[in-house]
Design a protein around this nucleic acid. Structure first.
Length: 194
DNA sequence: CGTACGATCTGCT
DNA sequence: GCAGATCGTACGA
């Protein structure tokens, strides 16, 4: 079920980002299980990718986690409000990451609605990276969490997504990245099609 | 030490 | 469609 270390150590972050569509992101925070099918991801391709925090070898306390081996969580604080959850991939010192931007809620929906605060529309419960983290209870303190553990992990539950249903577009919110802002590194499948 | 800004979301217009 | 919220991080002085 749980994706193995080998999976996260793969070299092609674009392949992983696309393959993660249909996998199930799970958290168990304070004993409460919540999960959802991953419906939207973005790949961040390390050194050559101007949109990546690790562009050109940039390495700071904040993005240090990206430099570790694949299979851990890279969670950082953005826009003064949001915790954004990424999956670190590839081997040590190759700072690849996949940003999880959307899930289709599965387990613990009531809890997720509560975390999001008086939200009734299940549809918009977890679209957008900030909302995903909030619904699943992921915070910056979870940075570095091992995805083989029992707090945050990703399951393969055999859900098949036709490649035809996966839309590929440029990434969101990276206009500052020049040419890299146009790269087709975003993968998304409509919630209602799963 | 000061400052600018960001891998965003929401609510109001 | 747009502005406001809200603050850690990075970087230059």
């Amino acid at each position: 079920m749980k994706l193995t270390p080998d999976y996260y150590l793969q070299d092609d972050v674009l392949l992983i980002a696309r393959d993660l569509i249909g996998k199930v992101l799970c958290t168990k925070i304070k004993g409460v299980l919540t999960s959802g099918i991953i419906t939207e991801t973005e790949a961040y391709n390390g050194f050559p990718d101007r949109a990546s925090h690790a562009f050109n070898g940039k390495r700071t306390p904040r993005n240090e986690q990206m430099y570790g081996p694949g299979g851990t969580a890279y969670v950082y604080f953005c826009y003064g409000i949001h915790s954004l959850f990424n999956v670190v991939t590839n081997v040590r010192d190759v700072p690849h990451a996949v940003l999880i931007r959307g899930i289709k809620p599965m387990e613990g929906i009531e809890v997720m609605l509560y975390r999001r605060g008086k939200l009734k529309e299940e549809k918009t419960l977890s679209t957008g990276p900030g909302s995903v983290s909030k619904a699943l209870g992921i915070q910056v303190s979870h940075n570095g969490t091992d995805l083989q553990g029992n707090r945050i992990w990703i399951d393969d539950r055999g859900i098949k997504i036709s490649q035809k249903l996966i839309q590929i577009t440029p990434r969101i919110g990276v206009d500052y990245a020049g040419e890299a802002a146009l790269y087709p590194y975003r993968f998304i499948v409509n919630n209602s099609l799963i």
